[in-house]
Deep mutational scan, measured.
Amino acid sequence: GHYRIRINGREFEIRGISEEEIRHLEEALRNGADEKILKEIVDRLRG
């Protein structure tokens, strides 16, 4: 998958993330885990 997200007015492209991972992120966001989720995304993109 290849997705664009906007955070604090800046747009980011996220590549190589699966539909299942996105559902997991959405679930966590609904549970209020904003900073933790951003850290997970950044860590994943770093490799």
Rank of each mutant, 00 (worst) to 15 (best):
residue 8 N to F: 06
residue 12 F to S: 00
residue 31 N to K: 11
residue 4 R to A: 03
residue 41 I to G: 01
residue 47 G to P: 10
residue 44 R to S: 09
residue 46 R to W: 10
residue 19 E to F: 12
residue 15 R to F: 14
residue 24 H to M: 14
residue 14 I to P: 00
residue 46 R to F: 15
residue 17 I to S: 03
residue 6 R to F: 13
residue 28 A to H: 14
residue 20 E to I: 07
residue 46 R to Q: 15
residue 44 R to W: 12
residue 7 I to G: 00
residue 37 I to A: 10
residue 28 A to G: 05
residue 20 E to F: 06
residue 33 A to D: 11
residue 21 E to Y: 06
residue 18 S to V: 03
residue 23 R to V: 09
residue 47 G to Y: 02
residue 29 L to V: 13
residue 26 E to K: 05
residue 24 H to V: 13
residue 37 I to M: 10
residue 18 S to K: 05
residue 11 E to V: 08
residue 13 E to H: 09
residue 46 R to V: 15
residue 21 E to R: 02
residue 2 H to A: 09
residue 42 V to Q: 05
residue 4 R to L: 15
residue 45 L to M: 11
residue 36 K to Y: 13
residue 23 R to S: 11
residue 38 L to N: 01
residue 6 R to A: 08
residue 47 G to A: 14
residue 38 L to Q: 02
residue 32 G to Q: 06
residue 22 I to W: 12
residue 16 G to L: 08
residue 30 R to M: 13
residue 10 R to V: 15
residue 22 I to Q: 04
residue 31 N to Q: 09
residue 33 A to N: 07
residue 6 R to N: 12
residue 22 I to A: 07
residue 25 L to I: 14
residue 14 I to E: 00
residue 18 S to R: 03
residue 40 E to F: 06
residue 25 L to R: 00
residue 14 I to Q: 00
residue 5 I to R: 00
residue 14 I to R: 00
residue 20 E to G: 07
residue 9 G to M: 01
residue 4 R to E: 08
residue 37 I to E: 09
residue 35 E to N: 06
residue 36 K to M: 13
residue 19 E to A: 13
residue 42 V to R: 03
residue 6 R to V: 15
residue 44 R to E: 06
residue 18 S to D: 04
residue 2 H to P: 04
residue 26 E to F: 05
residue 29 L to S: 03
residue 26 E to H: 05
residue 10 R to T: 15
residue 29 L to A: 05
residue 26 E to P: 00
residue 5 I to M: 01
residue 33 A to K: 07
residue 6 R to I: 15
residue 36 K to T: 12
residue 29 L to W: 04
residue 2 H to Q: 04
residue 32 G to A: 06
residue 33 A to E: 09
residue 17 I to V: 12
residue 14 I to M: 04
residue 43 D to L: 05
residue 27 E to V: 07
residue 41 I to V: 06
residue 27 E to Q: 09
residue 33 A to M: 13
residue 29 L to C: 05
residue 22 I to V: 08
residue 8 N to M: 06
residue 28 A to T: 11
residue 23 R to H: 10
residue 33 A to T: 12
residue 40 E to P: 03
residue 20 E to W: 07
residue 6 R to L: 14
residue 23 R to E: 11
residue 16 G to Q: 05
residue 16 G to V: 10
residue 10 R to G: 03
residue 35 E to Q: 06
residue 5 I to V: 12
residue 44 R to D: 04
residue 44 R to T: 11
residue 20 E to K: 09
residue 23 R to M: 12
residue 25 L to A: 01
residue 12 F to H: 03
residue 25 L to N: 00
residue 33 A to Y: 08
residue 20 E to H: 11
residue 35 E to K: 05
residue 36 K to W: 08
residue 32 G to S: 05
residue 27 E to R: 07
residue 34 D to T: 13
residue 8 N to E: 04
residue 38 L to A: 03
residue 41 I to Q: 02
residue 11 E to D: 07
residue 42 V to D: 02
residue 2 H to W: 10
residue 39 K to P: 02
residue 40 E to D: 10
residue 29 L to E: 03
residue 21 E to H: 05
residue 8 N to G: 14
residue 41 I to L: 11
residue 33 A to Q: 09
residue 7 I to D: 00
residue 46 R to L: 15
residue 8 N to H: 05
residue 1 G to D: 13
residue 9 G to E: 03
residue 43 D to F: 01
residue 1 G to N: 08
residue 44 R to F: 14
residue 24 H to N: 12
residue 21 E to V: 06
residue 45 L to F: 08
residue 1 G to E: 08
residue 7 I to W: 03
residue 19 E to V: 12
residue 39 K to L: 15
residue 28 A to W: 13
residue 47 G to Q: 12
residue 10 R to L: 15
residue 4 R to S: 03
residue 40 E to N: 08
residue 6 R to P: 01
residue 28 A to Y: 09
residue 10 R to I: 15
residue 24 H to L: 13
residue 2 H to I: 14
residue 17 I to Y: 02
residue 38 L to W: 07
residue 13 E to I: 14
residue 40 E to L: 12
residue 15 R to A: 10
residue 38 L to C: 05
residue 31 N to M: 12
residue 33 A to G: 09
residue 9 G to H: 01
residue 34 D to P: 14
residue 35 E to M: 11
residue 43 D to A: 06
residue 26 E to D: 06
residue 8 N to V: 01
residue 13 E to P: 01
residue 14 I to W: 02
residue 9 G to A: 01
residue 38 L to V: 09
residue 37 I to Y: 13
residue 23 R to I: 09
residue 12 F to M: 05
residue 36 K to I: 11
residue 34 D to I: 15
residue 21 E to F: 06
residue 17 I to H: 02
residue 23 R to T: 10
residue 42 V to H: 04
residue 13 E to Q: 03
residue 46 R to P: 05
residue 38 L to P: 01
residue 14 I to N: 00
residue 25 L to C: 03
residue 24 H to E: 13
residue 11 E to N: 03
residue 24 H to Y: 14
residue 42 V to F: 12
residue 34 D to R: 05
residue 12 F to T: 01
residue 28 A to V: 14
residue 17 I to G: 04
residue 45 L to H: 07
residue 30 R to H: 09
residue 30 R to E: 07
residue 1 G to A: 03
residue 14 I to S: 00
residue 45 L to T: 04
residue 11 E to T: 05
residue 35 E to D: 13
residue 28 A to K: 08
residue 25 L to D: 00
residue 23 R to Q: 12
residue 4 R to V: 15
residue 47 G to D: 11
residue 34 D to Q: 07
residue 39 K to Q: 15
residue 7 I to H: 01
residue 39 K to Y: 14
